[in-house]
Amino acid sequence: MEKDSIIETNRVHFYYGKFRALTDISMRFQKHRITALIGPSGCGKSTLLRLLNRMNDLIPEARVEGEVVFEDRDIYGPDVDPVEIRKKIGMVFQKPNPFPKSIFNNITFGPKLSGVAAKADLRNLVEESLRQAVLWDEVKDILDRSAMALSGGQQQRLCIARALAMKPDVLLMDEPTSALDPISTAKIEELVEELKKKYTIIIVTHNMQQAARISDMTGFFYLGRLVEYELTEKIFTNPSVKQTEDYITGRFG
């Protein structure tokens, strides 16, 4: 594994039953960088994202070939516990999905399961995570109120804070702004750029401007294949593959 990379996929194929959703994906995700995965619907980018923390395990009849290397071992190896992987590789979903619990209990859900029990530690963790997610000032007086009472954008930042409370190495984001208004989207984008100092972020997005604005590396997927994987600047100014150019200029997709 190369020095600056944190996750590598080697010749990964992925199947839903008989359907092959991903074909021969080999990618290196770099530490403390934002990598954007783009491509038309159904191209496999979300599938790849969910492969990286074994969320696809939850789908019956899903099957993986090849290896996904994280911390020098294949996370699909026989002795790997997916629960441990998910603690280190956090995830934020397309639709904000806070638990119907208080804001405080949303943040402490994961840490409590990992054995953080002391009240003071939990309180600190809540403040720290909410500050990192730039939500603290808005909710510090209503921590015991239901997370469901927050706006969509706040809920999504809460979900980010909840993921950060686990102190993950990598944060996977699956179209985190597609259900949000432009102002909330801008806030989340700002936040993501801030977070890359401490975390590695891999983000799936349908919004090409978003990929161009915030990511360092961009991978373009089409029909389950990785068509092009390059520096974002290069992809958006001078793509080497015609398909990529057609997609980002809006000729298809």
Partner: peptide, 19 residues
């Protein structure tokens, strides 16, 4: 979505059911 959120935070199946 609730289940996914729970699993993604490293909860096991039983923790997800109970909590």
């Amino acid at each position: 979505e609730f289940k996914e959120a729970s699993y993604a935070l490293g909860a096991t199946k039983y923790e997800t059911i109970v909590r």
